[in-house]
Each structure stands twice: as C-alpha cells, then as structure tokens.
Write a protein that binds this DNA or RNA. Sequence first.
DNA 1: GCACAAATGAAATAAATATTCCACATTGGA
DNA 2: TCCAATGTGGAATATTTATTTCATTTGTGC
Lengths: 283, 283
Amino acid sequence: MAADEDTLAPRDFESLRGLIMDRRSALPRRLAQVAKYALDHPDEVAFGTAASIAGAADVQPSTLVRFAHQLGYEGFSDLQKVFQERLRGRNSSYEERMKALKNTKEDEQGEAALVRGFLTAAQRSLQDFSDLVDPALLSRAVGILAGADTIYLIARRRSYPLVAHMAYAFGKLRVKNNLIASPNGIDPEIASMANRQDAALAISFSPYAADSVAQARAMADAGVPVVAITDSAFSPLADCATEWLEVAESDYAGFRSLSASMALCMALPVAIAEARRQKQGKN
Amino acid sequence: MAADEDTLAPRDFESLRGLIMDRRSALPRRLAQVAKYALDHPDEVAFGTAASIAGAADVQPSTLVRFAHQLGYEGFSDLQKVFQERLRGRNSSYEERMKALKNTKEDEQGEAALVRGFLTAAQRSLQDFSDLVDPALLSRAVGILAGADTIYLIARRRSYPLVAHMAYAFGKLRVKNNLIASPNGIDPEIASMANRQDAALAISFSPYAADSVAQARAMADAGVPVVAITDSAFSPLADCATEWLEVAESDYAGFRSLSASMALCMALPVAIAEARRQKQGKN
DNA sequence: GCACAAATGAAATAAATATTCCACATTGGA
DNA sequence: TCCAATGTGGAATATTTATTTCATTTGTGC
C-alpha cells in the first residue's frame, strides 16, 4: 500500500496536479502512463468509468486503482472525486453558458479568431473530401503504388509537407521511396533513374508548381506509372497521371488548408504497406 | 411509458432544459419535484448517483428513472449523460459533430475504410483542439515570435512537415526564419547563432525526438525565447519553453493525426505577420 | 547470470448502482 | 361513492463498475 497515505491524497485538483507532476518521474511505466493521461484528459477521468479510462490510457483498470493508492487515495473512486470537484460550478448559469457559446462564434478576435478560421477551413476540407472518397479509384491507386519497386515522391512548395510526411511514414513502414526535393538541383537526374517497375506519387494544387508538373510528365513519358493527388480535372497532373485522386481544400486568409490531403497522405502509406503484406502472404 | 420517445430525449443540455420547462407544469407531483431539483442542481445530477440525487430531491430512485423515461431517455443513466456533457470542456456543438462522424458509412472496407479512419481522427483532433484554444496564451506566443529578429524552427520526424510548411509560409510572408533540419549535421552550429533578439519555435510530440528537445533546451539556456507546440504538460518542451501551446491529436492505426497542429501552424505565420504589420504601423 | 523485489495483466470477486416490479395510494370522472 | 387510470414507495433484481487476487513478467542489485 501507499507509503504515507496521510500526507498525500490532496482534496483539490491543483494540489493533485502538483503532486502528480512531482511524482511522475519516479513512477513505474504504467503508472506514469496513467499520470500523463489523467493530466492530459482530466474531463475523461472525471466522467469515465474505470474501464473506459483504462482503455483510453491503454492500461488495465487495476492499474488505475494502484495509481490512486500510490497517491494515497482509498481507491480509484476516491481519486475520481477530486477530478469531479474541479468541474463543479463550471457553467453554473444559463447566461454564462450562452456567453461562452457566443464567444466561440464571433466575439473572439485577433489570433484566436485566426486559428479558429483555419480550424474551420480544415474541418470543411475534411468534410468535403469525405463525401468524395471513391473506394474503387483509391484501390487502383494503392494497387499501383503497392506494386512499385521504389516510390518516387514529387511535390513542391505548399504540397511539400505532404510528401515530407509520406517519406517519414514510408521509412517507418520500410517501403522504398525517394523524395525528389533535393536542394542541389539534381532532381531531374534522380527522377530519370525511375523505370517501369517503379511508380511516382505527385502532388500539386493550383497554381501547379512547374517543376512538379514537369517531373510528373517526364515520369509518365518514361513509362513510369504515376498516381497524382490534385484539385481538379483540369490540373496538368490529371492529364499525365495513370490514376488521380481529387482533393479540394478550403482556404482561409488566402492559405489553403492541407488537412484533407494530409489525412489522405497518412492513409496511403499504411494502405500500401498493408497491400504489400497481403501480397507477400500469398506468395 | 413515455408518450413519444423518438421526438424527445434531447442530447444537449439547453434543449433538455427547454423541454423540462415546457413539461413541468403538466407533470405529476413527484416528477415535477425531480424537474425542479434537476434544474436547480444540475451539478449534483451530473455527478451524483441515482440514490444520492433521489435522497436530495426527496423522492425514490425509481422516480428518477420514471422521470427519465417520461422525457424519452432509456433510463436515468442516459439522462445523466446530458448533464455531464454540460460540464465537459466542450463548447462547440460537440455532440452533433460526433454524431455526424458516426453517420459515415461503417460498411466500407479496405483502403476506403482506412482513409475514412484518418479523416475521422483528423476531425476529432480539430474538434478537441478547437475547444482548447486559449486566446491569451496564443497572443503571448505570437507576441514573442512577432518580436523576434529571426525565427528558428525546430522539429524532427513526424513534426517536420509542420515546420516545413511554416518555412514556406514565412517565406511568402517575408518573415526571416531558419529551418533547423539540415541534412549535413551542422544544426548545432546554426542553432548556436541564435541570440536574445531571435526566437525559436519548437514542435515535438510524444515520444519527443531527442534532437528537438536538446536544441530547444540549448536555445532556452542561451536566453533565446522559445515557443513550443507539444502534447502534454509532461513534455520536455513544456519545461524549457517560454510559452507552450498544447495540441492533443487523435490517432488511427497507430499514426497520430497532424490536422490540428497543421491548422495551428498555418495560423501562426499569418498572425505573426499581421502583428508585425500593426507594430510597424505604429512606429 | 541468478535471485529477489517490484510491477503488471487478466480474471475473479465484491461493491455499488440502476432498473424493474408490484402492492398500495391517489386522483378525477361517472 | 365507486371505478378505473395514473402515480408512488419500497424492496427485489439485474447490471454495471470498482477492487482484489494471483500467476506471470520485468527490472535490479549482487
């Protein structure tokens, strides 16, 4: 049981937070995990059940009880009460509540409004894209990339972060890839090494960086299968691509969101790795 | 049993309040008593047990269940959830959005399901972050960066795409910046050129790339103001940063979303440029 | 590399809590 | 005043949820 139950077990949340922060470095793995989860998601702890919280924090319910004991509480329920106290009296009046609601809508200004603007644009993008997902098309695109020896990644400027992430994900999934974005100007040479066994993934949105388009086209001309992610049927990438996926992003303050394409770019590597795994299983 | 269960049973507190107010005069004695108690002590209803609430309202537990049924809920627990939602730190119409997310086709499989999984994770991230935006904190962070001569960008691995985008945005907005991610290993040297007039923006999420942390800490030790974007109070970045912004991303298939942090990273450069423009106007 | 202690996962158990049921009371209409 | 419909209290039951236990794993000092 806990070392010194008496001195511990704070009854108010702030003391508890302090205690947890102090203790955490000295806690064993799973208990530290709980500590982190508890401070990161205090609302969940206040309302959840031991099982639901344990699930979310990826530990066993018993670990929660141990954690509570460690801190000097009688059990998880006792600890939970402190988390609940923290929420009592929040939003006490109807008026407050309405004011809070309005605040989030229009009253905010400055930086917060800007952030909210981008968040909204991102959300719209996701929604729009979600309505457009075409399973068959997606499946063909993944098929092409899964069949490739090396996947060449083509993107510039605004789209570059997308392939940067893919390169990272492919790396983790051990999928051979080549990010064509060297700062030393030998991109064309690298690109020219691609052959029919490889494939390219090109991403570009209006106004379509000339480099990206040129490289994608060169690949296509050389017989390399090209999968494109772009924003319109009129995109130059749509022309030269073997398959192309449409993503239309919303914009805010003149900057287009990247959230939908980013979600797609997170899914693709996983889908490709999965497809390869299955193919391997068959052989 | 309840008259018309379908049309009733609101999922958010304000509708429920309205419904109760309407119904109250037409309710039998004990139920009216519960109605009054519930609206007078919503916190108790949120956290109490059926027995404790019944005791406080001077009715039987079964009366609470009847009350809930009368309103169209499955039972007291179901009703109680609405009272709990009210206290959760969720401002936007959280329930609605989550319901909307669930609407999406469940039967899909293969690649499409994967994409949808990532889209959902992204939306959840945006939603969660949207409720956490702290205008004052944000304002201080922007202030620090807007006051800097050169902004040093620190991020590795998963977070790298974020700063890659920022470098691009800063470039377009003509904000001096330096992306510390050179492939030639001279990062420490570059970082050591920063001074008090500059500032650093460090981004790292659990498990916190050692390089990022080390560089951020070095900057902080050298007296360079550091703004951090990270995911928890336990993050090593939270320690050493002058100000830190919390972004908790949802994950899917073991890959965490980037959408909320990306939205933030799109907003920051614009906010910084704007802050500088205004400062210039004054001089 | 071994022995010991600490931590952990999973299942069994205990406790609590919500819900149902039914006998009884109350109300409103003939 | 009686009847039927509706509402109510209280106990019995079902369900959910927390806690304990114990076998197994993991880490640590020698």
